[in-house]
Design a protein around this nucleic acid. Structure first.
Length: 592
RNA sequence: GGAACCGUGGUGUAGUUGGUUAACACACCGGCCUGUCACGCCGGAGAUCGCGGGUUCGAGUCCCGUCGGUUCCGCCA
């Protein structure tokens, strides 16, 4: 018997009635009625019912059919026929027909699976991950992994049609000082020396620009040895690209064309072009976040000017220290919230790092607030006007240093937006956040560090203050944000050596350090580096959003647990003494 | 590094105030069953309650530790 399939299970339909077909697949479920056996046969396209009848099959073949169990792999040949009157199954795409089996072959038996493969059950993750190949057989994961393929395929086609070349870069590379903790790999040939797995192909893609490829991309695996989250794995994939002879505009325009097309292709949704843009400073002011969720309003308003002369000590002290007073209007919550609920908001704000949260409950012609008596008539009126307060509203104010006020109100805004059901889950709100600060101050290290990475170009107008006024240097950097989630970011890079040297100087790196870490890179810039820039998107997060999953593990075929273990293969694991000897490594494990 | 929640037959759960025989459904095994589709009916097997220690006459239950999972903070672009 030839066991090779002529059709896929999920594609057998009425048009094939009367035709002989051969199907391959797994036994999803069997219903043995004694003298008649129904089997749902499953392959990656779906299910189809096959019928084994003693009137058609030989005794030997029927006995084979009786022995079938879940997850057996079989090949069946038979004739497609309509189901009898009233026996159609509307829940099945192939529910109007069935296959009358004439011969069957067991290609592989299966042990009873450790968890049900054929139906949704909330099984312990440990078990699902240990038997990941069985979990992957289930419909939702099959669909997600297939969607991931379609997304990558779309991106490859798009970039190919725009002249990009897919070029691989090394996985065994060099540890760099800035950024995340590296995964390191010992060298056997060079004792005591280590490779690092790339956190991103950043320097390589810039070198490819210097090499004259002009347009590069890569579906690049990246590694960061940091603690995991629902949306963070230690190895993840970036859609990474770089272009020469372009400005930020060019990259953003091309990328929004790609993203809008991708969303259309995968979800069928129309996203209107152009994607709105907002500067980082404005995003922080209005949304209190560098990745604003623009699916709802409730924007933050600065009222510092209105209370600059205030006698109220909390306001006066914050302003005297160079801080701000900002607030947001929780529409209708004044009338709706109990005192208890308002107190919870205060507590929440304190958890986010605020010294306190001032609330004003706006009533009909009067206000209720613990600070009502400290504010002058004019101040109150100005605050109400700026926040467009109406009767029934609840105003929430924070007086603090600008970054803290922004952060606290930004988080409160998101939390209230969720709590009040203001977020329309069906919306697909992209926004570009541009003009990021080039530096941020690291309290831990007591110096300015690169906000993005040290190759990001500053704005031309800010070149003069590069090493003197780090706080106010803006970068030619842009992030693409979708529904409050950062999808990716990039920048125009520094392409002149003297600017790069000034950048390192501003970061407080010594000449020797620069030579040791980046010498090869700087040298390349002496041989004709074109102006260039690029961007990288987190593929896993993108797939997660486009398929509506809520964990990155659902979009990676073989993911790791929150403690960075692969429960299927059992990694990480000990290595043999022989391997350690070759590497000249001694383990000095601390007791307990 | 820190916090919270979870861990009971193969799977999902129940298990009262600590009380002696750990319950239910599905899956599994055997029998019956020719139109099922979460097939049905009858019967059966299957658990040292994640692991270690403690309190107690007695621990699935209380306490401590530990391992594993998940979520969050720190960390991470």
């Amino acid at each position: 018997m030839n066991w090779k399939r002529t059709h896929y299970c999920g594609t057998v339909n009425k048009e094939l009635v009367g035709q002989a077909v051969t199907l391959n697949g797994w036994v999803n479920r069997r219903r043995d009625l004694g003298g008649l056996i129904f089997i749902d046969l499953r392959d990656r396209t779906g299910l189809v019912q096959i019928v084994c009848s003693p009137e058609v099959l030989s005794e030997e073949q029927y006995r084979l059919a009786e022995g079938l169990r879940q997850e057996y792999v079989v090949s069946v040949s038979g004739v497609v026929r309509p189901r009898p009157e009233g026996q159609a199954n509307p829940n099945l795409a192939t529910g109007e027909i069935e296959v009358d089996v004439q011969s069957l072959e067991i290609l592989a038996e299966s042990k009873t699976p450790p968890f049900p493969v054929d139906r949704a059950a909330d099984v312990d993750d440990t078990l699902l991950l240990r038997y990941r190949y069985l979990d992957l057989r289930r419909q939702p994961l099959q669909e997600t992994i297939a969607a991931r393929h379609r997304i990558v395929h779309y991106v490859r086609n798009f970039l190919d049609s725009h002249g990009f070349l897919e070029i691989e870069t090394p996985m065994l590379t060099k540890s760099t000082p800035e950024g995340a903790r590296d995964y390191i790999v010992p060298s056997r040939v060079h004792h005591g020396k280590f490779y690092a797995l790339p956190q991103s192909p950043q320097m390589f893609k810039q070198l490819l620009m210097i090499a004259g490829f002009e347009r590069y991309y890569q579906i690049a695996r990246c590694f960061r040895d940091e603690d995991l989250r629902a949306d963070r794995q230690p190895e993840f994939t970036q859609i990474d690209l770089e272009m020469s002879f372009v400005e930020a505009e060019d990259i953003m325009n091309l990328m929004e064309e790609m993203m809008i097309g991708l969303v259309k292709a995968i979800t069928g949704r129309e996203v209107p072009a152009p994607i709105p843009r907002i500067s980082w400073a404005e995003a922080m002011l209005r949304y209190g976040s560098d990745k604003p969720d623009t699916r709802f309003g409730m924007e933050i308003v600065d009222v510092t000017d209105s209370v600059s002369q205030s006698q109220f000590r909390v306001f006066a002290a914050a302003i005297a220290a160079g801080g701000v007073v900002r607030g947001l209007n929780a529409k209708g919550c004044g009338a709706k919230f109990s005192r208890r609920e308002i107190d919870n908001l205060v507590e929440e704000a304190e958890k986010y790092g605020a010294k306190g949260l001032i609330w004003i409950n706006v009533g009909e012609g009067e206000i209720k607030s613990p600070i009502a008596k400290f504010l002058s008539e004019q101040e109150t009126t100005a605050i109400l006007r700026k926040l467009q307060a109406e009767s029934g509203d609840l105003l929430l104010l924070v007086a603090d240093a600008a970054p803290t006020a922004a952060d606290v109100l930004g988080r409160l805004r998101l939390s209230l937006g969720k709590q009040l059901g203001l977020i329309d889950e069906n919306r697909c709100d992209f926004i570009w956040v541009t003009d990021w600060p080039l530096f941020e101050y690291s309290e831990e290290e007591g110096r300015w560090v690169a906000a993005h990475h040290p190759f990001t170009a500053p704005h031309d107008e800010d070149l003069g203050i590069l090493a003197t006024d780090q706080r106010n240097v803006r970068a030619k950097a842009y992030d693409l944000v979708l529904n409050g989630i950062e999808l990716g970011g990039g920048s125009i890079r520094i392409s002149r050596k003297e600017v790069q040297m000034k950048m390192f100087e501003a970061l407080g790196l010594s000449e020797a350090e620069v030579q040791e870490k980046f010498g090869f890179f700087l040298e390349a810039f002496e041989y004709g580096a074109p102006p260039h820039g690029g961007i990288a998107f987190g593929l896993d997060r993108l797939v997660m959003l486009l398929t509506g999953r809520d964990s990155i593990r659902d979009v990676i075929a073989f993911p790791k647990t929150t403690s960075a273990m692969d429960l299927m293969v059992g990694a990480p694991s000990a290595v043999s003494p022989q391997q350690l000897r070759e590497l000249k490594l001694n383990l000095k494990l601390e007791e307990n």
